[in-house]
Design a protein around this nucleic acid. Structure first.
Lengths: 255, 255
DNA sequence: TCAAAAGTGTTTTTAGTACACCCATGG
DNA sequence: CCATGGGTGTACTAAAAACACTTTTGA
């Protein structure tokens, strides 16, 4: 992106003499909000913390940004470490940066959170650092009886991520990133239903998706029925568009 | 937001012994993208750099995040320092964090960029640190003949900010933050036209705004004509809604 | 009285919603 | 043959877009 421009003699001399003084120590980390659909429910990858602080609390996977990498690079590295996924089939984007000076009791830790959508992989994930990793259904996470305690400000991060994810599905074709190709329109509809937490009218959903230019591309084949009854559905692959027009809007927002 | 929870004895002992080791020095800064409408044109506040690196280049205003404040707090502090504006009439939100390890030649500088919308103030801005501050019309900024060289990766940041601003006007009532109250619907339409760079149909714009619940509230008065001709317009103040439904969409995105 | 901005009426087109109904498949 | 999911037809409603027209103002 931005290399510094050719130095003139004056600027070169300045940099020669520039000595980074002792700043208050700061750590820079990434936190990954990895979402997938499991058994029709929106689910999030969490790891159990092995050490202090927040020992034995569940936390977002993540780690330090190394000195020679950007946060984007660290996010992709962490995602591959945690999930062993091939990076071209996932969606990753920066979510937000959290910098409350007290968010980590040890020292100042600035964390840039990333949002990732991955298909539900048969391959078990298992990071190196993570003592224990598990996908939790989002609707269980915040129901008080379940009693899952989250480390740091990760509950806040997850709330922000869920709102972003719901919004992304409205204006972009990224719902397909939760699915392996090819998929049926029912599969796609269930992604929307899981992320939005509302039921959609199947017939109208179908028409809306098909009338939204290049959202999905028909394969012209039918898959095998995934149920013990019902007609077999046609198969689709993702189209090549980046924004949806018209958008597919949540009805729950309309009032 | 997130204070750390009550410590148990074990965690207290851990923190007692925790000694932040010497990390590679990192600086944490905020960069402000301050937008306003001047003479009907979307404009951005830039400051001329007094020192190296990028001496005499134009740059986004900003500064270090102090040890005891969050980036959000630093952003508001910087905005007040640069513009002397009263903070409750402006919109500020986090844009994105830029962390390329080479974005500053001195050392690693992580910068969280913020987006702010302010009304066009008669009061002249003038920060303390800024040797020179100036609002530039955005359309001039990137026209090559104008020849404005931007420091660091600030051109990238500005591009991201402009896209975010255009998008914010579609789904939120934040266009009103560019205006002082009360305002006319023409004033509001000119904000949209300046930010989107496209002309809007005045009659339809009026109907759309008035049919979008609580976007604006009629004052029941008429102002003085701001032109040398034409009917005087009714006055409005911002309504109390956070998202627009239906949204007001750019037509330029529809294909 | 003329030009230009403010505001209203109306029609056409497009998109969202609801509901009825047919099709294909496994049990 | 029947329950169930896949898929089509159609009518109704809401919103977007285009265009003609009236109102109000300063010069």
């Amino acid at each position: 992106m931005s290399e510094h421009p050719p130095l003139n003699a004056e600027e070169a001399a300045f940099l020669e003499n520039y000595n980074p003084k002792e700043y208050a120590p700061i750590s820079f980390t990434v936190d990954m909000v990895v979402l997938t659909i499991r058994n029709g429910r929106l689910s999030i990858l969490l790891v159990k913390r092995a050490g202090h602080p927040f020992k034995d609390f569940w936390a977002l996977p993540g780690g330090f940004v190394e000195a020679d990498e950007s946060a984007d690079e660290a996010a992709i590295r962490e995602l591959v470490e945690e999930t062993n996924i091939s990076i071209d089939e996932v969606f990753v984007e920066q979510l937000k940066t959290y910098s409350n000076p007290n968010r980590d009791p040890r020292m100042r830790v600035i964390s840039t959170a990333y949002l990732a959508f991955i298909p539900n992989l048969p391959t078990p994930q298992g990071g190196d650092d993570a003592s224990e990793a598990h996908f939790f259904a989002v609707e269980d996470l915040f129901s008080s009886d379940e009693g899952i305690s989250l480390a740091f400000d990760h509950a806040t991060i997850i709330h922000d991520a869920l709102e972003r994810a719901a919004s992304k599905l409205e204006y972009t074709p990224l719902a397909t990133r939760f699915l392996e190709s090819p998929f049926t329109l029912s599969d796609l509809r269930k992604v929307y239903e899981a992320v939005w937490g509302e039921e959609l009218h199947a017939a109208n959903f179908r028409r809306k998706v098909l009338s939204t230019g290049n959202f999905v591309k028909p394969l012209g084949e039918k898959g095998e029925s995934k149920f013990d009854t019902g007609r077999t559905a046609e198969l689709y692959v993702p189209g090549d568009v980046n924004i949806l027009h018209p958008a597919i809007l949540r009805s729950s927002l309309k009032d």
